[in-house]
C-alpha cells in the first residue's frame, strides 16, 4: 500500500473580532495512493478548511501535509480541485475553461486543445465546447469543472461537496460518471461530503470528523462490492454504523 499523502497533526484557529474559533484540532491520517477517501462530518466541522489546507490554499497553524517526501505548503501542480459551486470562469467557454490549467502550465496550444476536447468528450459534453457557463445547466457546469480538473496531470483530486448544489438526478448521474472516469485516470481522490449515503456509495475509506473543533472521530474501511447496491442489507448496516459515530 503506497501512501499518497500524509496529514500530520493539522490545527487551524480563526480569529473573529474578539474571540478565536478552533476549526481543526490535531487532525492526522494517511491517504493511500489511488483510493477514494471520503471525509464526512456535520457542517462547521472544518471539512472545507481541511481541503483548502491540503490544496495549499490555506496555511495550518501547526502540522503539515506531506506528498511523498515533500511538504505541501503552497498550491501545487500535483493537486487539483473540483469546487462546490463550480467556480468556472464566466468569460471563458467550456473548452477555454478546461484549457485554462493547461495554458497556465505552459502546454502547447495544440496539446491544450486536444486534451481539453478529449476530456469534455469524456464527461459527455461533446457539442457544448463553445458555450459559456451561463448557457450551461448546473450538472453541465460541474462536468466542465470535472473535465478541467482531470485534464491536468495532477495525481490528487480534491472534491469539495461537488454534488451538493445539484438536483438528485443530476447528482446521481455525475456520481456514476465519476466512478467510470476514475477507472481511466486512477487519481487519488479526497471527497468532502455531508451525505453518509454518498460517502458509502463512492468511497474506499470514510473518515468521520467531530463537530467543531474538527478532529478524527472514526475511520471506516468500505469493503462493499462495486457497483454498490444502495438498497442492500450491507449498505444499510454500514450507514447505521457510520451514522452512530457522527455527533452534531
Amino acid at each position: 500500500m503506497v501512501e499518497a499523502l500524509r496529514i500530520e497533526k493539522i490545527s487551524k484557529t480563526f480569529k473573529e473580532e474578539n474571540k478565536s474559533v478552533t476549526a481543526l484540532n490535531k487532525i492526522s491520517f494517511d491517504v493511500r495512493q489511488g483510493e477514494l477517501l471520503a471525509i464526512i462530518g456535520p457542517s462547521g466541522c472544518g471539512k472545507s478548511t481541511l481541503l483548502k489546507i491540503i490544496a495549499g490554499l490555506a496555511k495550518p497553524d501547526s502540522g503539515f501535509v506531506r506528498h511523498k517526501s515533500r511538504i505541501i505548503a503552497e498550491p501545487n501542480p500535483k493537486v487539483t480541485m473540483v469546487f462546490q459551486h463550480f467556480a468556472l470562469f464566466p468569460w471563458l467557454t467550456a473548452l477555454e475553461n478546461v484549457k485554462f490549467g493547461l495554458k497556465m502550465r505552459g502546454l502547447s496550444e495544440n496539446l491544450q486543445e486536444k486534451n481539453a476536447r478529449q476530456w469534455l468528450r469524456e464527461v459527455g459534453l461533446r457539442g457544448s465546447e463553445d458555450k459559456h457557463p451561463r448557457e450551461l445547466s448546473g450538472g453541465m457546469k460541474q462536468r466542465v469543472g470535472l473535465a478541467r480538473a482531470l485534464a491536468t496531470d495532477a495525481e490528487i483530486l480534491l472534491m469539495d461537496e461537488p454534488f451538493s448544489s445539484l438536483d438528485a438526478f443530476t447528482a446521481h448521474a455525475l456520481r456514476q460518471d465519476l466512478m467510470r472516469l476514475r477507472l481511466k485516470k486512477k487519481n487519488t481522490i479526497i471527497l468532502v461530503t455531508h451525505l453518509v449515503d454518498e460517502a458509502i456509495e463512492l468511497a474506499d475509506r470514510i473518515i468521520v470528523l467531530t463537530p467543531r473543533p474538527g478532529s478524527v472521530a472514526a475511520i471506516f474501511e468500505n469493503k462493499l462490492k462495486r457497483p454498490r447496491n444502495k438498497r442492500s442489507k450491507e449498505f444499510f448496516r454500514l450507514v447505521d454504523k457510520i451514522t452512530k459515530t457522527i455527533r452534531f
Partner: peptide, 15 residues
C-alpha cells in the same frame, strides 16, 4: 470577486 473563482485560478496555476 468570488473567493472560489480566485482559488480556482490559483489551483490551476495562474501566477
Amino acid at each position: 470577486l468570488k473567493e472560489d473563482l480566485s482559488e480556482a485560478a490559483t489551483i490551476f496555476g495562474a501566477t
